[in-house]
Design a protein around this nucleic acid. Sequence first.
DNA 1: GGAGAATATATGGAATTTTATGGTTCTGCA
DNA 2: TGCAGAACCATAAAATTCCATATATTCTCC
Lengths: 159, 159
Amino acid sequence: MLGAAVSVFLSTFENKVDRKGRVSVPSSFRNVLSQQKSTGIILYPSFKHPCLEGSGDERIQEIVSSIDAIDVFSDEAENLQTILADAKQVSVDSDGRVILPHEFVVHAGISDLASFVGLGKSFQIWSPKNFSIHRQKNRLRAREQGATLRIISSSSERT
Amino acid sequence: MLGAAVSVFLSTFENKVDRKGRVSVPSSFRNVLSQQKSTGIILYPSFKHPCLEGSGDERIQEIVSSIDAIDVFSDEAENLQTILADAKQVSVDSDGRVILPHEFVVHAGISDLASFVGLGKSFQIWSPKNFSIHRQKNRLRAREQGATLRIISSSSERT
DNA sequence: GGAGAATATATGGAATTTTATGGTTCTGCA
DNA sequence: TGCAGAACCATAAAATTCCATATATTCTCC
């Protein structure tokens, strides 16, 4: 196995999507998922960007719990339910691949390549082209604003 | 069935309704129901939207308990009792289909297609057309309020 | 240190199983 | 006896499993 397995989604990988919509989940992402004891991956279209949001499927439990915690008929509950209605669970096959549902491929403008972008606790899937535009914009803005990042240190994390 | 699907109703499926009113329950929904050991499905018309609410049949127990817990003569109690009065149990046949009662088809404005919408512990059945309008509205609102995203990220902030 | 063996990853394609869905028959009941 | 609902088949499309291969990458033994 590759270098020390980190327990967060990290880095960017570009993999091929075959004509059945299959694409390999980067090996390091699979390691993170199995550490989370996820049996699959939850995907849903991003509200903000032409990309997909992904995470281990234990995340769904969190959303369902959030819904339970609020009034069933409230707007807020419906907002959360929207995510459930749009989400799909995809299972990782024995070769480490998932099938990207057609609507999702369309939403993200993916054709024959998909970029898996690690965001720590979750990840995104982009068409490489859209992602490079997005990244450029982000970098520019970060530079202009002189973005700073406040690190919250927690002694419980690894050394 | 593989993929140990999460035990919640998830995603949206659009299936055909034949001229006898038969419609396939999405396979993943059937899995959730069988995990719940439901012998059938409880359906009742939503009083908020032109759609049907559905769930495994143990859900009725929860509704009954809720009624018990509140003032017997309150509006709320009456609302809930209305649900009981209007609810019907439908059985899933050996091919995984149910028959939508005619009044329900009318209430939801369903003709030859039905959208099964996963909401976690329950689901809804819509006419695809009405649902797409509803979904659009919800997504817009969710985006404006940012409520959904906030809740999700706060609950996922945990280690 | 390096040749070759053993592993791991990404990817293509075929075989097999599930679903969704249409049609037909059977059955109880009004 | 006619009709609604239930149980039965049949089949096409879709999803899942299985197998094969190319290409790295790591390991091991000399």
